[in-house]
């Protein structure tokens, strides 16, 4: 009953959102093809803008860093804070890292085309990525990336239609690669524990959904491709 309620709520939200979007799009009158084209064009433009903005953020980060370096050379007070800042940037995911670890590979299985099975269990859902990331943290991972997107404190996975999005509008698509730095054997033991990822593992058996991992002596993770904004939380002194 409540499941139904939640589903209707989700449906309502999805429909509402979609309706809002359609209304706000400048569309050529009653031309379905043109409309579809306009929608896809909007996505392309927004993704171009997204890439340009990320490049701009990275350029600014570099200028800020050079300003900080210069300040640290001039003042010992600044130098002291700067040393702490560098450590904190590493903790938050703003620094590229490498080290031993594991690489987890995931891909969709095949559609059973069974009218009695509408579970969509054969596709990789964002929740599966979230579960793998959580398990890797629990197994001692020091840093994680998914398809080249660094997992940072603010990272959230979610659906936009059939698209899985992460970190400021980055679209992830199959196959998925989750890379983690840490003790390769602890990480692999965590992944191999039959009590963990039980649902995903059974879907892997039923639908041929791909789930595998390899240990590695060296994996490489990029830095987070943007920065953080804190608008509501204030330090409590």
């Amino acid at each position: 009953m409540t499941v139904l309620a939640s589903v209707s709520l989700a449906t309502f939200l999805v429909t509402g959102l979609a309706a809002t979007q359609f209304r706000s799009q400048p569309l050529p009158p009653s031309n379905r093809l043109a409309r579809e084209q306009a929608l896809r064009q909007s996505v392309n433009q927004l993704e171009d803008q997204n890439r340009a903005l990320k490049a701009r953020v990275q350029t600014l980060q570099a200028s800020v860093k050079s300003g900080e370096d210069e300040s640290a050379r001039r003042s010992s007070a600044a130098q002291q804070v700067k040393t702490q800042l560098d450590d904190e940037k590493t903790v938050a995911g703003l620094t590229a890292l490498h080290g031993p670890g594991v690489t987890v590979l995931l891909h969709d299985g095949s559609d059973p085309n069974d009218p009695a099975d509408r579970s969509l269990g054969w596709t990789v859902h964002y929740q599966d990525l979230q579960d793998i990331v959580n398990l890797l943290w629990a197994s001692g991972a020091e840093a994680i990336a998914v398809n080249g997107q660094r997992i940072v404190p603010t990272t959230a996975f979610h659906y936009a239609g059939v698209n899985i999005l992460v970190n400021n509008g980055s679209r992830l698509s199959a196959p998925y690669t989750v890379t983690a730095i840490g003790d390769p054997s602890s990480l692999a033991t965590g992944l191999g524990n039959p009590d963990q990822l039980a649902e995903l593992k059974s879907r892997s058996r039923i639908y041929g959904l791909g789930l595998s991992w390899v240990r590695s002596t060296r994996v490489s993770l990029p830095a987070y491709d943007a920065t953080f904004l804190v608008k509501y939380a204030q330090p409590l002194s």
Binding site: L17, A18, Q21, Q25, L39, E47, N50, G161
Partner: peptide, 9 residues
């Protein structure tokens, strides 16, 4: 899906 993606982007 595309409309939802536009919203998120």
């Amino acid at each position: 899906s595309v409309a939802l993606l536009i919203n998120d982007l």
